[in-house]
Structure formats: structure tokens, C-alpha cells
Design a binder for these strands. Structure first.
Length: 134
DNA sequence: CGGATGACGTTAA
DNA sequence: CTTAACGCCATCC
């Protein structure tokens, strides 16, 4: 059953890379799924990023912070579509949650979308060289 | 195995 | 602005 095991590990590695990239997005900045996929070493697989985030473990639900001293607050709310639009349907709880979190970080959201030109995250050289081993 | 779906992207009309 | 088409791939039925 090594193939299954390897497949599982490979998938885990992809998720880990995606979560890593997502987690290193600074406050007040947003990134698109395609950009995350690209930085995570998965060019053209933006959908995979969304899939990974949808399969995201309980790490996103960072409630009960008292029993988890070193929780992993996945910054999924800083991930938007390439055009700066919120990935969720307008009116959905997830969308409201994401918009709220973004506004909490000084990111302006107008009509369910963000000015990607203004808040688009552009990783600096140090991040590219150090965190991504690029 | 094939069809449909999805927290997507880009280009074209 | 909207629609459509194609690409790309994991997952479900």
C-alpha cells in the first residue's frame, strides 16, 4: 500500500506548502489563489488551493483559544480571487466573516470586492529567498 | 472510466 | 459591466 501512502503524503505536502504561503501573508495585504498556488510551487492549480483551504482542518476555527496555546490561525481570509473579489457568495456567512476580518486589518472592501491594486500582496525578495527557497 | 462540480485564472467578445 | 470558452486537477457519483 505504499502508493496510497505516498499519495497521501504528497497531498499533505501540497497542503502544507499552501498553508505556509497563506500564513505568511502580512496584515493589510491580500493575495489571489493563483498567486498562492504559484508561490507554493503549484502553477496553474489555483483550484487546488481553494480545495485545500476548503479541506482545511479545524485550524481555521481557532475558537477555544484557551486549550490551544500554539494554535495555527490560518489566514484564509487574506486569500481572494484574482480580480480582488471575495471568493464566497455575497451574503454568505463565510463572506461576511472574511470581509469583517479584512476590515479589521485595515483592508477596504467595496461592494464585495477589494482593490487588488491597492492591497495586493507583493512578496519581497527576502520572503522569496528565505521562506520559499526560491 | 466518464460526467459533474468546485473557496480559480485568463482571454475574448 | 456580463457571458462564454478553455485550462487545470482533486473529488464525488
Amino acid at each position: 500500500m505504499q502508493s496510497a501512502k505516498q499519495a497521501k503524503q504528497a497531498k499533505h505536502a501540497q497542503h502544507a506548502a499552501i498553508f505556509k504561503v497563506v500564513n505568511l501573508i502580512p496584515e493589510g495585504k491580500v493575495a489571489s489563489y493563483g498567486q498562492i498556488a504559484d508561490l507554493a510551487g503549484l502553477p496553474g492549480r489555483a483550484r487546488l488551493v481553494g480545495k485545500a483551504l476548503s479541506m482545511a482542518p479545524e485550524e481555521i476555527t481557532d475558537k477555544t483559544a484557551d486549550s490551544a496555546p500554539e494554535q495555527k490561525p490560518l489566514n484564509w481570509h487574506r486569500v481572494l480571487r484574482a480580480n480582488g473579489q471575495i471568493a464566497f457568495a455575497k451574503g454568505s456567512e463565510q463572506a461576511k466573516e472574511q470581509i469583517g476580518l479584512l476590515q479589521q486589518e485595515n483592508v477596504a472592501v467595496f461592494n464585495h470586492r477589494v482593490n487588488i491594486k491597492e492591497f495586493g500582496w507583493q512578496p519581497d525578495m527576502h520572503t522569496l529567498l528565505h521562506d520559499l527557497s526560491f
